[in-house]
Design a protein around this nucleic acid. Sequence first.
DNA 1: CTGTTAGCGCATTCAT
DNA 2: ATGAATGCGCTAACAG
Lengths: 344, 344
Amino acid sequence: MTGDLCREKGGPVGKRVTILDVAEEAGVSRQTVTRAMNDMSEISAATRRRVLEAADRLGYRPSRYARNLVTRQKAHALGLVVPSLRNPYYTEMAADLLSAAAERRWQVVIAAPEGDVVESLALLSTQVDVIAGYFRRPDADLVEIVRGLPVVRLGRERSEPSSAVPGVHAVDTDLESGIVDAVAALRERGARRFGMVDSAHRSGGPYTPSPRREWFEEATGGELTGVVAGEESISGGGEAFAALLRQHPDTDAVLMFNDLMALGAVQTARALRVDVPGGVRVVGVDGLALGEAVDPPLTSISLDRRGLAEHILDIIQILADADFARLPPIRRSVRATLLTRGSA
Amino acid sequence: MTGDLCREKGGPVGKRVTILDVAEEAGVSRQTVTRAMNDMSEISAATRRRVLEAADRLGYRPSRYARNLVTRQKAHALGLVVPSLRNPYYTEMAADLLSAAAERRWQVVIAAPEGDVVESLALLSTQVDVIAGYFRRPDADLVEIVRGLPVVRLGRERSEPSSAVPGVHAVDTDLESGIVDAVAALRERGARRFGMVDSAHRSGGPYTPSPRREWFEEATGGELTGVVAGEESISGGGEAFAALLRQHPDTDAVLMFNDLMALGAVQTARALRVDVPGGVRVVGVDGLALGEAVDPPLTSISLDRRGLAEHILDIIQILADADFARLPPIRRSVRATLLTRGSA
DNA sequence: CTGTTAGCGCATTCAT
DNA sequence: ATGAATGCGCTAACAG
């Protein structure tokens, strides 16, 4: 009854207890053990008990690999690759994906590569049927790394120019139209002098304008009063925001690279006694639920994350139905829309 | 080169492409195919190319189950069960666990049961070697549901009274000592009239005082001016906080059930023109990084999440080293400490 | 109700 | 450098 260390016969440590051991211990065939373990029908209550006790005594646990290998209806697993779970965007995105996946009985293995991306992906690919996520590597490298596993590439900005590498599908985000909408809305509310806080983080090198900035410049017709780059964090956003206002005090509308940075902007505005949205309108990007946490709540260019999740699930379901055969690349797209809360 | 639909011979759809198909297609033995697929040595560059091409043509992908079944060094997977990824506590906890797991080459499958918990766990248990998480069910039920898989129960409050069900290990959180510390610190800063906002959410039934409240009452020596229960959210915290101040305007220190609710409290205090910490000191629970997002930043009773993650990994590593045999229950514990930021 | 016969798809011995 | 045997641990069909 109590938990004594098992291993009846002091056999070699590490020798796995198999169904045969249990069968022998219980004095039945291995098939009967299967019946007992899986709550199947054609077995008497008495033998079931006896088998279960034997299994318990030996500390038997069926091998998930062997079971899944032989079972007809295989369980599906999706590998989700995000840069970090410490960034709320990815966190909320993962939550939405998890919900959608659960509805369709898919399991989700999450990986947030901190060290060697290749190693992470290689390991991940041994445990899942498909991989979806945000990647920097080109499509061709990707299929190599994951050894032919189907990949769903998620885009936060724009799409690659239809690369059409077999086995690499994609869900793009149309952020541009959301930015255009936001600028129009800001203009309507009287904004004239637009500024932006961009992300300074461009993989090591010196600052390069992000696509968001380019779209924003286009949408404002080159009216930008100023741009400051900052670290992608709450405090980074706050500091960059302050610098922007210092350099261009007449700015009356600011697009923040993302909501995380926008959170810092709103907080800093308060410290600087700058009224939001009265003095400066602040717009973030992502539409995080977190935007509700500050006062005024964040107005944001919101990505349809639920739609994103559904698209991913649609695609991998199509792949699964085709038994993960190589299909022509599937491409979907989700829109971004202006979510008006208090800050603009 | 381009992605035409595969399935050379119009065989039955759903018939999986196996290593034998590739061997035949390439005119070699299956062993050679293995060598080519796994970048092994004893094979000529020419045949490797030929095999790889054949595999590509057929859309062959090795079965992860078969491979893991036969391979010596098995990949380990941990199932993490959290109530929801929309709650930042679990999100930050998951992030810490993911980091720790990656270092030890463990995969993490995350499940956030929204519907049927039993079904979720049953599904999860087919894909992982151990399950760790937050559960409401008693230990005995748990091992039943996961079919004998080892379980690491995570406690956010206290521990069960050493239930000692074989196969159920635990990492407890010593929140109580953190609360005692916090009360002492608050007293030292002049707080005298303590209030609390508790969680209203007790699985369907009417309000029941949480352990946190009981410890807080004990630590304050029954000095509580008032307690209001609210929904576990930012806005829920804000509303309950406002109600508490309405009922007991002289309260000068409030313990919020968690940081999420405390975020709402700080925000509401500002709207009500109540000075924090000058007028009221606000303390949250969890020590979320998110607490930095509000002004003043949240003072919080902080759980050592990194330590929690390490303990979990320690335990499952011990289990893995014992080949997941039934071991006597392992129990660890992490402390909570007062993280002083601005709100108290 | 129970046992026997088959594989599942792959990597690992060995041989050659 | 390649091929032939063998077995991983389990469940599915069939028998009895």
